[in-house]
Design a binder for these strands. Structure first.
Length: 116
RNA sequence: UCAGAGGGCUGGAUGAUCGCGAGUAGCAAUAUUCGAGGAAAGUCCGGGCUCCACAAAGGCAGGAUGCCGGGUAACGCCCGGCUGGCGUAAGCCAAGGGACAGUGCCACAGAGAGGAAACUACCAAGUGAUUUUUUGCUCGCAAAAAACACAAGGAAAAGCUGAAAGGGUGCGGUAAGAGCGCACCGCCGCGAAGGCAACUAAGCGGGCAAGGUAAACCCCAUCCGGAGCAAGACCAAAUAGGGAUAACAUAUGGCGCGCCAUUGCGUUGUUAUCCGGGUCGGUCGCUAAAGGUGUUUGGUAACAGACACAUGAGAGGAAUGAUCGUCACUGACUUCGGUCAGAACAAAACCCGGCUUAUAGGCCCUCUGACAAU
RNA sequence: GGGUCCGUAGCUCAACUGGAUAGAGCAGCCGCCUUCUAAGCGGCAGGUUGUAGGUUCAAGUCCUACCGGGCCUG
């Protein structure tokens, strides 16, 4: 039982690299990558915050906000059998939560419509 | 009031709803408790702990430290003192042992850069066939003085340079000069007395011999075994390989090595059960500590002793987010009701003692100087 | 966690055991050459030597503390 409930969690570097070659959507507050994974039938998700956006405090906060958004939206908007990676940007921390939510919503919808 | 010096504290508070991590209770749903810092940071020192190595002790190499005394588990940390420098002062700063143990270096400039003497200039016995003056007289010679040239020798005061030129200033002295002599200052040696010591220092003596650099090599004294929680301990899949036992197979065989042959040497198949090592994975190590707060005793202090009290982060890709209030803080606007915005540096990863660095705003204590008033 | 190396002009690199204006190539600007450009030739500018202290007569060089970056390794 992990903190994301029914969602699976990406941990290994190889898993992140796998998703990197999939589809890609960038919004002001977040970048989302997604790729269908035939090995399972759940929604899995990983979070990334590079050193570029700030120190440890900033990076942790960015990941938390993304996780919060993701818990709210992914069960409805995510596809089963798909791996997602959320990448934090400079704006992720300063952007109002409502706007960050809308960014994510838009990105997820675009990903669903886009062809594989 | 203004300017300044030293030290300490704090790092918003409190609620509501939906979520997060760990513990506890429960079959479960769930309930309940707790949940980042003063620097958690940098990883610059010192320890605990664990494993490895090792008789004790000492030495080599390498590294670190470096005025004295004290504190401490220990330190490169802290406290107190000394000396030197800076500041009107409060105070601040100092890698602050050794340069007669040795070696090296001191560019350029300059006469000269290290155990002082070659250069210029100074003085000078003497020599000179030169010049001038004076004197003498036998009237064209002599003597003396001065100048000039050379110069035995004297001297280290002057010269420019430089970061630095082998005491400084003044007077005397001398052919010219010189601690050559004297006065004051500085320096060196001894040293009453004080201090645990670093060190201070009355007094006496010495004309003075002693450049800088050891964050250049080095010498001296003191300290240091190595690795790190991915330490280390335990449990323990799949697959492959190892060992034991049993059954079956069989060898004039198969495989490998020596160039090949003869020949020699080495090795051995399948199945079942069991055993130990060990990888993935898991559990422990894992947080109560040389700790904190208060009072008190000793100590100038760092700190130490005694007594009392309270204590709950321990993850493993890594826990605090979202929304709405109230009260404080700062700024702007204000119709004085409020409105809007802001709020630092930064997050444990085995644990402690320090150091260093970052830090919005706020609070407190002590002291110095100037001005004003009394 | 442990270790090691490096920061010099816009870029790539020099500067010997500390020694005096920190050099070179490319790039830039100006001029010459050419009908014009490129190439070539001549000239010019460009540096708080990563930052802050210290040692020394003197620091890019030695020492200390920070800042930034690379590499090796469990």
């Amino acid at each position: 039982m992990n903190k994301l409930g029914k969602l699976g969690l990406l941990k290994k570097r190889s898993e992140f690299l796998f998703v990197r070659d999939g589809r890609y959507q960038a919004q002001r507050g977040v970048v989302i990558q997604a790729r269908k994974n035939p090995e399972h039938n759940v929604i899995r998700v990983g979070f990334t915050a590079t050193k570029k956006i700030g120190n440890a405090v900033i990076r942790n906060r960015a990941k938390r906000r993304l996780r919060s958004v993701c818990l709210e939206l992914l069960p409805q908007l995510g596809e089963r059998g798909t791996d997602y990676v959320f990448i934090a940007r400079d704006k992720t921390v300063t952007r109002p939560y409502q706007a960050l939510r809308e960014d994510t919503q838009k990105a997820l919808k675009n990903l669903m419509q886009a062809p594989k």
